[in-house]
Design a protein around this nucleic acid. Sequence first.
DNA 1: TACCTCCACGTTTTT
DNA 2: CGTGGAGGTA
Length: 771
Amino acid sequence: MNPSFLSGLNEQQLEAVTLPPRLGSGQAPQPALILAGAGSGKTRVLTTRIAWLIQTGQASPAGLLAVTFTNKAAKEMLARIAAMLPINTRGMWVGTFHGLCNRMLRAHYREAGLPQLFQILDSQDQLALIKRLMKAANVDDEKYPPRQVAWYINSHKDEGKRAADADDYDSFSRRMKELYAAYEGQCQREGVVDFAELLLRCHELLSKNEILRDHYRGRFRHILVDEFQDTNRLQYQWLRLLAGRDNAIFAVGDDDQSIYAFRGASAANMQELQKDFAVEKVIKLEQNYRSHGHILDAANALIEHNRRRLGKNLWTSASKGEPLRVYEAATDFDEAGFIVEEVKALHSEGVSLSEIALLYRSNAQSRVLEHALFNAGIAYRVYGGLRFFERQEIKHALAYLRLLASDDDGGALTRVINFPTRGIGNRSFEQLQDLARERGVSLWAAAVEKAGGGRREARGEKAAVGESEDAVKADAVDHVSRLTPHASLAKGIPAFVALIASMRAATASLPLPEIIEHVLEHSGLKQHYQSEREGADRLENLDELINAAAGFVSDEQQDDTSLTAFLAHAALEAGDNQAQAGADALQLMTVHSAKGLEFHSVFISGLEEGLFPHENSLSEADGREEERRLMYVALTRARRRLYLSFAQSRMLHGQTRYNIASSFFEEIPERLMKRVNIGLRSKVASLRSDATGLRSKVSSLKFDSQNLKPETLNFRPDFPWKIGQNVTHPKFGAGVIVDAEGRGADARVQVNFHRNGTKWLALEYAKLIPA
DNA sequence: TACCTCCACGTTTTT
DNA sequence: CGTGGAGGTA
């Protein structure tokens, strides 16, 4: 009686999905390593395995744990399970490593030595804490760059090492070790936990606490891991600890797609797993359902050049399809022009833009491409960049919320104590820090003391520790009412203390979205951005934050909708980075962020030696192999059509660089590739580049004329510049004048730059050139 | 406190 | 070329 969801699986997929318990061991599950090539149905196998285990009664939904690296993958997995089985997936332990560890630590915060409302630091917050710490300790940040300190701390944690475990063989490493130790102390005092700490703390919790360990081991008989090749040491140790001797890990991964070694991922964990769990079954999924034959042949031939592989060869029953198209461009500009033309052609053949990806090795390469696409009027979406919860205004709002939730959070206090400005400058803040350090208390406690002290001084009373917050609040509110906009510096602190205290009191019993609304209003954030010239977007984002909270509260998958849970959600899931996700648009992204995706057509641009493979990676151990895997990932994203392009010269860091073609071209058999510009290359290139230039002018004129409102076309008699006129700025590039004001020395024009948005420029200074 | 100018730096990234 | 951070000045 095979459930319907098993139909359509191939032999190997079916074997993996229905892998029986280990022979002669009762119901003890069997460990397995599934070597799943690109496009071989990896996620399907993983989710179907879960459905099968539940359906056949080998596991209950609560009795298994499935772990992924990204929230997106976790959500996808839950959605697929829900589609196969009539069960409520809420409450299932399916999530990211960090999400699951967070869950466990929340449930056992005491045993883990954490405060109940511990806050999670993202990388930004972590770096800020390190800087603050180093400044307070007077550490030379030239010799010990905060970023490097952060890297040191994180990589030690990823290895499972505390400061006490760190090496100290010379003065530098001794100092780093001290900084790590100081950081540990600071985090503990402030009740905050960074990303790596979530994992390390959880690992320590399970390894030290036998009762809990046994509890979870007894519960999770099946542990399933996605993208196993991306696990770092600590993550693997965590999995081992949870699995113990009796439970089984079902790991799915592809060593050829291991592209995160630079952040500690170790594909060697695949070999470790086989050894540690005595894996009998290594199942290879080699049938590819994604790409045409030539594309796969190219990918296989390329990856053959790597020495350290588990070994696997993808095949397809699909036809050979088209050859790979190779374009050698004269310049990066020319390359962009070629891509624009081909995208247009594909689009007119009926391929939707969202089915076309434009990939590059590094983000800096997107600019030329974006420019060309913009001028050609092709809709595109760039992945990467600032995400929603990482935006400045959102971080500020979240900092107020964190402070409401947890007094001790010094990072949150530091961020907003003077934002919006309330007269607490560096001097006052330093005094506060000194006081906190002297007394060994949190910044908040120091602020409360300072605020209280001010009142008592005025009344000739003696300061006392342990005064109730309400008294301070009542008193500080009193302060606020007397404050003038330019109150003396010391007055700022009582005002701040009163503000936080009153917000805390007023929001104590409110639902989450209303808490946020209250905070936005009363913190002064809203007013601040309202009065800021370019604050409109930020205000919109702040409103969006309320919506996000409302969505969070009403999400049925969410069992905890407290403020703290929302803050954890914000840190662990930084959100999307682009608003217009739905529109049909060409997809621009780095090769790294393309992993796991597929497209009808793929352009891999900038295939130049030094760029891809990247020169910086070549000095690292196995760097070239990792770059090759990256190229392998890029190639295998395409279903039907694949373009490879490179440019003889390219503007990079303000200099023209002359590059040769990537060595990867030599690793792909010539018969699979078709050069689309042999011989007439340079001539065609220059013509094309001319044509593209002309076309872009026409299209930008069209764009400009569409964006002009008729009523703004009133020219002033003595004004040398006209609204609607195309101009060029040495820094901002081409643009069009959309508004003007003043005359003579005060004359200013508003220019909508194609690349840099709208700016007001003083004509006296700005070197505008008519175009 | 806020703005401005100068300087250094520039691979990939999720949580 | 562009940006972001730091430091100096109004």
